[in-house]
Structure formats: C-alpha cells, structure tokens
Amino acid sequence: MKDRQTAHDRSARLRQALDQCADGDDSGIAAILDIEGRQLLGVAFRMLQRHDLAEEALQDAMVQVWRKAGTQRADSGSVRGWIYAILRNRCLNILRDGKRLSTLAPADLALVQEARQQIVPTEGWEILAGSSKLRTCLDGLDAPGRQAILLAYVAGFSHGEIAARQNMPLGTAKSLIRRGLSALKECLS
C-alpha cells in the first residue's frame, strides 16, 4: 500500500515537473533530477560503463526533456517511462557516434567495450531481482529471444552486434527480437 502511494506521488511529481518544463520553468529539470537523477545515471552508467559519458548522456537527455516537455501526452504511457526512453536514446547516440567514442584513449575505449560485453548475464532475466510479472514473462521466453531483447534494451547493442554475438544471421536476429517482444507484451497484458 505504501509502495503504491509512493509510486503515485512520484508519478504526480514527475508530471508536475514536466509541466513546469513545458512552461519554461527550469526548476522542473531540478525536480526531475531530484526524483530520478540517481537512477537515471545508473541506467546510463550501465550502458556506457563510464561516469563521464553517463553524465554527458544524462545532461543531454535533460536538454531533450526540456525541449520536448510539451509533446508528452498524458494518455500515452508514464512520464517516467518517457524520460528513461529519452535517456536511453541519448546513450545510444554516444555509443553509435564513432567520433564521440574516438575521443577516448584506445585503452579506455577497449575497457568500455570489454565491460559492455558483461552487462547482460547469460541467464538474462537474473537482471531483475525478486519476483515480478516482467521477470516471469522474460523467463517464459526462449533463451536467445530473451537475451537479444536484453542486449538491445539494457546494453544498447544494435541488430548487427546482437546477430554477431548470438552467432546468427541479421534477419534471424531481427525477427527473433520482434517475436520475443510481441510474446512478452502478450504475457504482460
């Protein structure tokens, strides 16, 4: 009950913060960082494996949140989900911008790439602690599909990288991921 109340409060506070951003009041950005900043940075760090890159992605994401605040629709998912989606997109921008990564020393870049290989454990659903509907549903997917979805969502791997890592043709990887997500959605609903 308390958890539900907390979640409800957070959701209302995030909505209010986003409304402030849409009105041009940057205290909305401070509020979002206050409510979600540590968790957001955790997501960015997990994907990018460097604190400086993670903060760059988070800052970049907050600029996007600021610019797009007026476009988030109350009837299309939570504000929280929307903000995390923007953050993950900014992380992907950094990962896929060869020029950005080339500013890292080769040894540092190698460390990042090495660490990224370890983000998703072999039994992917272990990433979710405790018991949850999502964990149960991930558990119900076949292992390659589950792994591919997690490599994409959690680690930011591209279709090509997933195909190479799973040792399968690109087209197979693409359809595996789409089928997997569709099955996951069905299980969750």
Partner: peptide
C-alpha cells in the same frame, strides 16, 4: 507508451549512482 512502461522495470534494475557535485546546477 505501453511498451515502454512494460520494460521500465529493466531500467529500475540498474544500480543507482550519485551525481557529481553541482550536476543539477550545471544542467539547469
């Protein structure tokens, strides 16, 4: 939006991390 919210627990599974000193101010 539904798809995002379905997968959001994966984001919440990351270990939280402290922001550097002054991060909120510089972002503002």
């Amino acid at each position: 939006g539904d798809l995002r919210d379905s997968l959001l627990p994966l984001d919440l599974s990351a270990t939280p991390r402290d922001l550097s000193e002054g991060f909120a101010e510089s972002t503002r």
